[in-house]
Deep mutational scan, measured.
Amino acid sequence: QVLVIRIKIPNSGAVDWTVHSGPQLLFRDVLDVIGQVLPEATTTAFEYEDEDGDRITVRSDEEMKAMLSYYYSTVMEQQVNGQLIEPLQIFPRAC
């Protein structure tokens, strides 16, 4: 299952990153890619938005798994409803 992660860049749009092994993705892998997209920032975590629009911070593989399972459940709903699949949007955080 292909996963598209949209890395939101403060004040300048976003970069889409296509991942072919989504469920095996590790927290460190995401930080590495964010580091390539935002080389001047030191990113130690990132956030995503849940169904209520609240930002949830991801700082570990466990939290990463929770984010992915949340995302895959929303994708299934979108597929069932015949909607366009939205990329998983993440917001890098420099701490």
Rank of each mutant, 00 (worst) to 15 (best):
Q1G: 15
Q1A: 06
V2H: 08
V2L: 08
L3M: 08
L3F: 15
I5A: 01
I5R: 00
R6W: 02
R6Y: 03
R6T: 02
R6H: 00
I7S: 01
I7H: 01
I7E: 05
K8I: 14
K8R: 12
I9G: 10
P10C: 03
N11V: 03
N11G: 13
N11Q: 11
N11I: 07
S12Q: 15
A14V: 13
A14G: 08
V15S: 03
V15H: 12
V15P: 01
D16C: 07
D16E: 07
W17A: 12
W17Y: 07
W17M: 09
T18K: 12
V19D: 02
H20W: 05
H20A: 11
S21L: 07
S21D: 14
G22K: 13
P23M: 12
P23C: 14
Q24P: 06
L25D: 00
L25F: 02
L26A: 13
F27E: 04
F27M: 05
F27S: 02
R28H: 13
R28F: 09
R28P: 01
R28S: 15
D29K: 06
V30I: 06
V30E: 08
L31T: 08
L31W: 00
D32V: 03
D32S: 07
D32M: 10
D32N: 13
V33M: 15
V33H: 15
I34M: 10
I34C: 06
G35V: 05
G35K: 08
G35Y: 05
G35L: 08
V37P: 00
V37M: 10
V37Y: 15
L38T: 08
L38M: 15
P39D: 10
P39S: 06
P39F: 06
P39K: 06
P39W: 01
E40W: 08
E40A: 08
E40F: 09
A41C: 05
A41G: 14
A41N: 13
T42L: 09
T42Q: 13
T43Y: 11
T43R: 04
T44V: 10
T44F: 07
T44E: 12
A45E: 14
A45T: 10
F46W: 03
F46N: 01
E47F: 03
E47H: 02
E47M: 04
Y48E: 02
Y48G: 02
E49Y: 15
E49K: 07
E49M: 04
E49R: 04
D50G: 13
D50P: 04
D50R: 14
D50S: 10
E51C: 13
E51D: 10
D52G: 12
D52H: 13
D52F: 10
G53T: 00
G53K: 05
G53M: 03
D54Y: 10
R55F: 06
R55P: 03
R55W: 04
I56S: 02
I56R: 09
I56C: 07
I56P: 02
T57P: 10
V58W: 00
S60I: 03
S60F: 00
S60H: 03
S60P: 00
D61C: 00
D61R: 00
E62T: 09
E63R: 04
E63Y: 01
E63Q: 07
M64F: 10
M64G: 00
M64Y: 04
M64P: 01
K65Q: 13
K65P: 10
A66F: 08
M67F: 03
M67S: 01
M67Y: 01
L68D: 00
L68H: 02
L68Y: 03
S69W: 05
S69R: 12
Y70P: 00
Y70S: 12
Y71G: 01
Y71V: 01
Y72W: 08
S73F: 05
S73L: 06
S73M: 08
T74P: 03
V75W: 09
M76W: 09
M76G: 12
E77L: 09
E77Y: 11
N81T: 09
N81P: 12
G82Y: 05
G82C: 07
Q83F: 08
Q83D: 14
L84N: 13
L84C: 15
I85R: 11
I85P: 07
I85A: 09
I85N: 07
E86D: 09
E86K: 09
P87D: 00
L88Q: 02
L88I: 02
L88G: 03
Q89T: 15
Q89C: 14
Q89K: 09
Q89E: 14
I90S: 03
I90P: 02
I90A: 02
F91S: 03
P92Y: 00
R93H: 15
R93V: 15
R93E: 07
C95A: 15
